[in-house]
Each structure stands twice: as structure tokens, then as C-alpha cells.
């Protein structure tokens, strides 16, 4: 496409990212007639849409969360399958974020726009890897869009957890993880590292772990915490949503080491705010190096940056000579790092 020209058939509206020639929204923040959903996190998959197009897994996750409110009618697609909506061809390709997560590849009038949704490039045994699709305009997330965010290897971080478990057998390790994606990835990495013991789950994690297992992701032996005597958890690994670390529920744990698995743990102040004695830097979002590598890989002339720390990534893309701008999407707070946002976005 010509230098300086801006693609104009996809635009941010109060209801979300709207595709004009297809008359649909991607990850709408308000109820939409027609929605394409990138993945199952609550700030992307919201209830109450009418027609929903998404991967089989994402729809299964939305149904598990919202029941009959997940949508009126569904179109379940596989990665790579092409659908036509109005004057637009639509294809979902893997984003590597959580099980079923997809980038939306839109083609119209000889132009291609890729809406990445949330994504990562690092390894995750619970979902398909990110696929690079070259395009004219690339819409990227920027949750960790600052060069201070460089995630270490997730396997090494899980190794630190296991070292702490071995060093403090008289304590219980309570790991705060987001219910969708992070919980299953950490469990799968523990299994890869040879940890075969039962892993105990807070009630809020059970449904999605069971769903992952039903969809073919092996998580080994899992059991609910509920009903167990305190002593039974000594020396064990227990997983719960981050919000449960500080509430009364956690008092039933025997002298817990509080661990939090999140990309925010890179910043000490965040780790302290979360009360993490053992911060584990494990994220399902691309870090700075992954974001910048992706911007180069997709070879797009235009980069749109959504939710997160847009400024630095826009600056970086411009320094490469690319057209770049921040998209302010309604429904996502200025910083995206408040407590609820962290819970929902699975950072």
C-alpha cells in the first residue's frame, strides 16, 4: 500500500473495533449483532452478542463461563478456515495466547489487516504457537509494551517454584494464577518438569481445567481444595485466582508461601502490592522483545496499538519508519494494570 495512506475500512468505535464492509465487530465491548471473538478472556469475550464467530475452543470457553448468555448463534471455525462476511474474507490463525486464541485476518479490496488480539511468541504446551501472517496493517496489543518487560523462560520460573517447594517442605505453596490459560500452562509446565503429585485447585479454577482436559490438554492429577483438612496441604502446590491470595479463603492453607505467576511480577512494586513472597514471571502476553520482533515479522506498513502501554510501541514502530498510532478502545482502562483488569486479561 501507498506510503502514508491509512486503511479506513476498520475503525475503533465506542462498541469496539468495527469492520465497515463486513458489518461486524472484533471483540465488541457492547452487545453486537455480529461478533468475532479472538479468545475467551472476559475483556475480549463478553456475553450477550447475537452471532458469534470464533474457534471451537473459544466458544467452548465462553459457554463454560456464560452458559446460554454466550451468544445466540455460533459459527465454530478451525485455524486457517476462510469465511466470507459481506465483502470481507475472514480467517482465524493461532495467536499462542491461550487455548483457542486467534488472530483475525481480514481481507478486503486487496488489503489485509490482522487483528492480533492478545498473543505471545514464547512456548506454551497448552496451545498452538503464534503464526506470523504478513499484512498491510497489524493491530497489536501492548500489555507489556515497555522495554523493561523481558520475560524470562517460563520453564525456569517453574523451576524456581519447584526449588522453593523442595526447600520448604513444611509449608504449602499457594500459587495465584488466572483461571483461563495461566493455570493450565503452569500446571502443564510443572508436569513437564517431572512434578507428578496431585495439584490442588481453588473452586474457581476447576471448571476451566476440566474443560482443557476435555479438549485434550493433559494436566495430570488435579483435586479440589474444598473439604480437605489443613494438614493435607502441607508440602503441596495449591492454585487459586490471584484475588483469593489475600482473602479469608487462603487462611485455610498451612503457612503458605504466596506465589504469583504473572508478567507484572517483573516489577518489584507490583509483586509487593500483590503480596507475592515468590513472584514468578510467567506471562501469556508478548514481552517487549516479542512485540517488537512481531512488528518486524509481519512487514506491515501500518501498526495500530491497542490496550496497554501504547506510547513506547508506537514510538518504536515509528523509529522503524512505519505508520503507527495508538487506538484507544473503550472498556479498557488507561493502564490496564488495575486489579480487575489483571484478573480478566490473564496477564
Amino acid at each position: 500500500m501507498a506510503e502514508g495512506k491509512r486503511l479506513s475500512w476498520l475503525e475503533p468505535r465506542p462498541g469496539g473495533l468495527y469492520c465497515i464492509p463486513g458489518d461486524f465487530y472484533v471483540d465488541p465491548v457492547r452487545k453486537a449483532e455480529r461478533a468475532i471473538i479472538t479468545h475467551g478472556h472476559a475483556d475480549h469475550a463478553r456475553p450477550g452478542n447475537n452471532h458469534v464467530l470464533a474457534t471451537h475452543e473459544t466458544i467452548a470457553i465462553a459457554e463454560a463461563r456464560y452458559g446460554s448468555n454466550a451468544g445466540r448463534s455460533f459459527q465454530r471455525v478451525r485455524y486457517g478456515e476462510v469465511t466470507r462476511i459481506g465483502d470481507v474474507s475472514v480467517r482465524l490463525v493461532s495467536a499462542g495466547h491461550v487455548l483457542g486464541s486467534a488472530q483475525v485476518v481480514l481481507e478486503h479490496g486487496g488489503e489485509r489487516i490482522v487483528v492480533s488480539g492478545d498473543y505471545k511468541r514464547s512456548r506454551d504446551p497448552t496451545c498452538a504457537p503464534f503464526e506470523v501472517v504478513t499484512c498491510d496493517a497489524f493491530i497489536t496489543e501492548a500489555t507489556f509494551g515497555l522495554p523493561v518487560f523481558r520475560h524470562p523462560s517460563a520453564s525456569a520460573e517453574v523451576g524456581r517454584l519447584l526449588a522453593s517447594v523442595a526447600a520448604a517442605p513444611e509449608r504449602c505453596h499457594l500459587v495465584g494464577v488466572y483461571a483461563l490459560g495461566k493455570a493450565q500452562r503452569v500446571i502443564a509446565l510443572l508436569r513437564e518438569a517431572g512434578y507428578d503429585d496431585t495439584i490442588y485447585l481453588h473452586g474457581a479454577l476447576q471448571k476451566l481445567c476440566a474443560l482443557y482436559q476435555r479438549l485434550g490438554v493433559d494436566l495430570g492429577d488435579l483435586a479440589p481444595v474444598a473439604g480437605l483438612p489443613k494438614q493435607a496441604l502441607t508440602g503441596r502446590i495449591v492454585m487459586c485466582p490471584p484475588s483469593s491470595l489475600a482473602d479469608r479463603w487462603s487462611q485455610q492453607m498451612p503457612d503458605p508461601v504466596t506465589a504469583v505467576a504473572s508478567g507484572w511480577m517483573r516489577i518489584r512494586a507490583r509483586a509487593r502490592q500483590r503480596g507475592a513472597e515468590l513472584p514468578l514471571i510467567i506471562s501469556d502476553h508478548a514481552d517487549w522483545d516479542e512485540l517488537t520482533a512481531t512488528i518486524r515479522d509481519v512487514e506491515a506498513g501500518e501498526i495500530w496499538v491497542t490496550h496497554g502501554r501504547e506510547d513506547a510501541l508506537v514510538h518504536y514502530a515509528r523509529s522503524l519508519g512505519l505508520e503507527a498510532r495508538a487506538l484507544s478502545l473503550v472498556g479498557r482502562e488507561e493502564d490496564g494494570d488495575t486489579e480487575t483488569e489483571m484478573e480478566e486479561a490473564g496477564s
Partner: peptide, 12 residues
């Protein structure tokens, strides 16, 4: 610019 944005964010 990246340093400035980073420092503003990290605060240390």
C-alpha cells in the same frame, strides 16, 4: 524516549 516512558512506569 523509551527510557523516559519506562522510568515513569516503573517509578524506581
Amino acid at each position: 524516549e523509551l527510557f523516559r516512558l519506562s522510568y515513569d512506569y516503573v517509578g524506581d
